[in-house]
């Protein structure tokens, strides 16, 4: 769905399929992995610069989330020196700051501390209220006050 792997059938976002218009489709959707990987030899700001140059992020939004997660304090360091929490926050900021209409967040809460978790849930609430569709998978109970989210519980590989 996020365009990372080939697939059969069609996924339409805003009436666009990835097979017909990859660039437009990619503008509308973004995926955040549970255990993000980024090149260890690059610095955080090099990654940020790359995302901005390629239009994968909106500068105003990205700045907002980098500040929110306090990523700016270590953005100049090499990613190989990041802890898993630091990497996760950078990765989430890059996805939330993309300005895409549909965000797929795979286990966004793991490796985040309590304060960062609260900030993330608040950000999710804000984005959702602004019209962003967020599909989130989590092993934890995710309670977002003020947000009516549709929750699906998976048990024994079936939607319960």
């Amino acid at each position: 769905m996020a365009g990372l792997n080939p697939h059969d059938g069609e996924v339409l976002i805003e009436g666009i399929t990835i097979k017909k218009d990859r660039i437009q489709y990619c503008k509308h959707i973004r995926y955040a992995e549970a255990d993000p990987t980024l090149p260890a030899f690059l610095t955080g700001d090099e990654i940020v610069k790359f995302y901005l140059e390629t239009g994968a992020c909106r500068k105003d939004l990205l700045d907002k989330f980098l500040e929110l997660f306090e990523v700016k304090s270590y953005i100049g360091q090499i990613i190989g020196t990041f802890s898993s929490g630091m990497l996760k926050k950078l990765s989430l900021a890059l996805v939330l700051g993309s300005g895409a209409n549909v965000l797929l967040l795979d286990e966004p809460l793991i490796t985040l501390d309590t304060a960062a978790t609260a900030l993330l849930l608040k950000a999710i609430e804000e984005l959702t209220l602004q019209g962003t569709t967020i599909i989130l998978t989590s092993h934890q109970d995710v309670e977002i006050p003020g947000l009516k989210a549709q929750q699906l519980l998976i048990e024994n590989q079936m939607i319960a």
Partner: peptide
């Protein structure tokens, strides 16, 4: 392998093949 394994998110970037 570097671009696809260590930097797979680039696949999601709205950029042309030529880029």
């Amino acid at each position: 392998r570097f671009w696809e394994e260590e930097f797979p998110y680039v696949r999601q970037f709205p950029i042309s093949h030529l880029k």
